[in-house]
Simulated assay, not measured.
Amino acid sequence: MNIATWNVNSLKVRLEQVLSFLDKNNIDVLCLQETKITDDKFPYESFNDIGYNSYWLGQKTFNGVAIVSKYKSIKTLYNFPDEDEEQKRLISITLPSKIGNICVICVYCPNGQTIGSEKYEYKIQWFKKLEKTLKNKLIKNNHLIVLGDYNIAPNDDDVYNAKLCKNQILTSEIERKLFNNLIGLGLFDAFRLFKQPKCSYSWWDYRKSSFKRNIGFRIDHVLISCSLKERCQICVIDKSLRGLERPSDHAPVIATLNTL
């Protein structure tokens, strides 16, 4: 199974890029963040035409998540359980496979804006809800994959300049602790299971020629349960799409899992 995550920063703008990415990389499941379109505008027909099922949770102008999959979901859930969350940031599907059902969760975690702000506090509380949700998911699902834009660079190796970025948004001690709390549940960062090139990032600001200068952060992650760790064959960041005309500011992260 080739499974990927990509913050597209507007699906309307980058639909053709997404369709091309699916085809060229033989992607089985793709998690999308910041679709920025309402449910009635989701282009499910475009995905259906190339053999994909679509599951989405939209929001005008901001946020929005979706999963497109070659396999049909046998259970689809939206946002946190028993909460009518205004911001659309989480969707999960359950897929059948030869190794058993696989729960795939797509997340667009809050940015937090600035340390100490109301948005930063919202980010902290949101991650606590995510931790509780994943803890319960792991009890019920042996095979779990949580993909998305986490808006956290977990370690100094995930930042272009650790000293300059120390205790800033995306790298603060509290944010990193929140991320490590998820790992502590029994999840693994698929990208770090393999030897990777130095200075590997998934997000570069549009400003100051950040991509050309590789001033980036690795904030898009694929977390997998212990049962899938040995089945993970590779995990890479596809930087080529960041170099396209009118690109997203994020690059896709792709993991290949042996589910046969």
Rank of each mutant, 00 (worst) to 15 (best):
M1G: 08
N2W: 15
N2A: 13
A4L: 05
T5Y: 05
V8C: 07
S10K: 02
L11N: 05
L11R: 02
K12E: 07
K12D: 09
R14T: 01
Q17T: 12
L19H: 00
L19P: 04
S20C: 06
S20I: 04
F21T: 00
L22W: 05
L22Q: 08
K24P: 10
N25G: 07
N25R: 15
I27K: 00
L30Y: 12
C31L: 08
L32A: 11
Q33G: 08
Q33S: 13
E34S: 06
E34W: 09
T35V: 13
I37A: 00
K41I: 11
F42P: 00
P43S: 07
Y44W: 12
E45C: 12
S46E: 15
S46N: 12
F47D: 12
F47S: 00
I50T: 14
Y52C: 00
Y52K: 00
N53T: 11
Q59V: 14
V65Y: 02
V68T: 08
S69W: 12
K70H: 08
K70N: 04
K72D: 07
I74V: 09
T76L: 09
T76R: 10
T76G: 02
T76N: 11
L77W: 08
N79S: 01
F80C: 03
F80P: 11
P81I: 13
D82Y: 12
D84A: 07
E85C: 14
E86H: 15
E86S: 09
E86W: 10
Q87S: 14
Q87K: 15
R89L: 05
L90N: 02
I91T: 04
L95Y: 03
P96S: 11
G100I: 12
G100V: 14
C103E: 11
V104W: 05
I105C: 14
C106D: 15
G112W: 14
T114E: 14
S117I: 13
S117D: 15
K123L: 05
K123P: 10
I124F: 07
W126K: 06
K132T: 05
T133H: 13
K135F: 05
I139D: 14
N141G: 09
H143N: 03
H143T: 09
I145C: 06
L147I: 06
Y150T: 05
N151Y: 12
D157L: 12
D157V: 01
Y160W: 12
N161H: 02
N161G: 03
K163Y: 03
N167L: 03
N167C: 11
N167F: 01
I169K: 04
I169N: 00
L170W: 14
I174E: 09
I174L: 01
I174Q: 12
E175H: 04
K177W: 09
N181M: 13
I183G: 05
I183A: 03
L185G: 06
L185R: 10
L185N: 09
L185T: 11
L185F: 04
G186W: 13
F188K: 08
F194V: 05
K195D: 03
P197R: 01
K198V: 10
S200E: 10
Y201H: 04
W204K: 00
Y206E: 01
R207K: 13
R207L: 07
G216V: 04
R218V: 05
I219D: 13
V222C: 13
S225N: 08
C226T: 02
S227T: 13
S227A: 06
S227N: 15
K229I: 04
R231A: 00
I234L: 01
D238A: 03
K239M: 01
S240G: 04
L241G: 07
R246K: 15
P247N: 06
D249F: 01
I254E: 01
T259V: 07
